[in-house]
């Protein structure tokens, strides 16, 4: 290569690099590329006469040209990617989103508080080998009273204000009839619980409802004692309250058990010292329970000399109110979503 040619290559390169650096847009870069590196570009021009050179000259000129070409390509590429970065950055900045605006679409609804607590108790007992049974809301006198050892003139019928229906039927006053259905369906030994809606003819106010929920439970096996009953009740209550509880039994009268108990737990708020929640007694009434009365077993075809059992009935509604601090029972059947959505 002649010295003049050499010089012109150097200045060409310097000049092009200068233009690349100062390019304002991608189009300027393209212009430089076409002018220098294109098929008919200046570098191509400089290699036109290569055929006339000696092999040594050709090799050295080729080397020089290649170096210049590489340097320019590199510079172009760098500059181009800088332009692309800027463009991307600008586009992304334009895509700013205010995520504090509420997201569209439906939110999950919620389950009734009675459903929630009922499900907890069901799961607890199922994990201990109990089956969950259901029964009808409309019952016969036989299932609701007679088979539970509550004959026609029994004073216990006074304790229950029954809704009577045409046809001699009634709305069940407790979930206990499901005990009868369960014993007849499953036979001994058995472990069952039965949650459900029950009815008492009571005027409605903040603490009285004619429609409320109970859970009934029963176990029948060869050897069942008061000690076992206490064990299951304590286990259930500890599961429910998620802490250790102290339980106590005191005599309670339910015709379908003998002996019958009222089960209380030591007040969770004051620990038994006495406070407004436990009405200063230190104890909170939880449920009624007892050993299944032999007449009840017998009437359901189970021999009381061979089998024993315990049973309990728990006011689910009351438990729900305690759990969530609900002060007015009417909310539960009231259907007000402002209340129900809190659960």
């Amino acid at each position: 290569m002649s010295a003049a040619n050499l010089e012109s290559l150097e200045s060409l390169e310097q000049d092009a690099l200068q233009r690349i650096q100062s390019a304002a847009a991608l189009a300027d870069l393209e212009a430089v590329r076409v002018e220098l590196l294109g098929r008919k570009g200046k570098l191509a021009g400089l290699s036109k006469d290569m055929g006339q050179l000696t092999p040594e000259e050709r090799a050295s000129r080729g080397k020089l040209l290649n170096r210049a070409k590489q340097a320019l390509e590199e510079a172009l590429e760098q500059r181009k990617s800088a332009f692309e970065d800027t463009a991307l950055h600008t586009r992304l900045q334009a895509e700013w989103v205010d995520l504090t605006v509420p997201a569209p679409g439906v939110r999950p609804g919620s389950l009734h508080p009675v459903t929630l607590v009922q499900r907890e108790i069901e799961d607890l007992f199922v994990s201990m080998g109990f089956t969950v049974l259901s029964g009808p809301e409309v019952e016969t006198e036989h299932h609701n009273f007679d088979a539970l050892n509550i004959p026609g003139d029994h004073p216990a019928r006074d304790m229950q204000d029954t809704f009577w229906l045409e046809g001699g039927y009634l709305l069940r006053t407790h979930t206990s009839p499901v005990q009868i259905r369960g014993m007849r369906k499953l036979g001994p030994p058995l472990r069952m619980i039965a949650p459900g809606r029950v009815f008492r003819n009571e005027e409605l106010d903040a603490s009285h409802e004619h429609t409320f929920y109970q859970i009934e439970g029963m176990m029948v096996d060869r050897e069942i004692s008061v000690s076992h009953l206490i064990y299951y009740m304590k286990t259930m209550l500890e599961g429910l309250f998620r802490r250790e509880v102290t339980v106590r039994l005191r005599p309670g009268y339910f015709p379908f058990v003998e002996p019958g108990f009222e089960l209380e737990i030591q007040c969770l708020l004051c620990g038994g010292k006495g406070c407004p929640v436990c009405k200063q007694s230190g104890w909170l009434e939880q449920l009624g329970c007892g050993l299944v009365h032999p007449n009840v077993l017998r009437m359901s075809g189970i021999d009381p000399e061979e089998w024993m059992g315990w049973a309990f009935g728990l006011g689910l509604t009351r438990l729900v109110m305690m759990r969530y601090g609900i002060d007015d029972i009417r909310h539960l059947q009231g259907g007000d979503l402002r209340f129900l959505r809190q659960f």
Binding site: D221, V226, H228, R250, E258
Partner: peptide, 21 residues
Amino acid sequence: DDLVEEVGRMVGYDTIAPEPP
């Protein structure tokens, strides 16, 4: 069974320890 209650309540139900069957 009625006598179970008489004895149980007088010895005190709190003297019966909870036990699984």
